[in-house]
Amino acid sequence: MDMGTANQSHQEWLKEMEAASRAKQTSFIDGISAKLRRPMVTEPPRHPFRGAPDFWNAYEWGEQERIDRFTANFLSVGGHVERLATMEDAQRFITDKANELSAKYIVRQNQPELEALNLEGALPDAQVSVWNSDPEQFWKARAAEADIGVVIADYAAAYTGSITVLSSKDKGRSVSLLPTVLMAIIPVERLKTRLGEIMVHFDEGGRASLPAGIHFISGPSRSADIENDLTIGVHGPGVVYALIVG
């Protein structure tokens, strides 16, 4: 059987599975309704307790406090934070760090703001790859071998010290995950107080607006699985820089 036929038969099998699943869905859900001793609810139920308590939704810090709190939280879990005025400063910081660490492979997201940093020109000795810029490449391997991954945060939350990154064809999930060091640029206006200020976009945008991967990153990868001894960099990046710019 050639690959095309194999794929076709796999697609047929998936269709069969879906038909079986849809048939079962009715009995599965009806079984739940029966246990709840009432007919299936079809109208959206009133949800008076949706989301965080009201006092929390009104909670907001000023910009400097958001920066201070984010910094304190990120440092406390072993991350690094730099406060930078401009993207030129960010470029300088990243290239200095890359030189200091003798980075050979760097992978960055395919975004105009990062393009403008011209890391390729600034780091002639390193191989800087741009995520998904060449369909022939095996991009997961490029990210896995990278010393440094460079991303721009879509959002950040000060209260928990979290960076939020959303995936797209130009923004690989691997870039913030596989390299040894992660550099995340946070434009200061994207730094919010609460997680809820970020999540509200996903509710409002609705299902069809969401990317495949939404990741909240709150420091370097860690584990305490061996005798409660904190280990950094178990699977994800062990060194994480949050560069707050603007």
């Binding site: 998904n132 928990t160 010290g161 064809k169 997680l195 299902r207 909240f216 990153i217």
Partner: peptide, 25 residues
């Protein structure tokens, strides 16, 4: 006792057709 775990991931379906990572199925 963490304010948030290091990673919290919300995954909405398989990779989009043009994505270069994430599961196809």
């Amino acid at each position: 006792g963490q304010k948030l775990t290091v990673y919290m991931s919300g995954i909405t379906g398989p990779r989009r057709s043009e994505d270069a990572d994430g599961p196809e199925e």
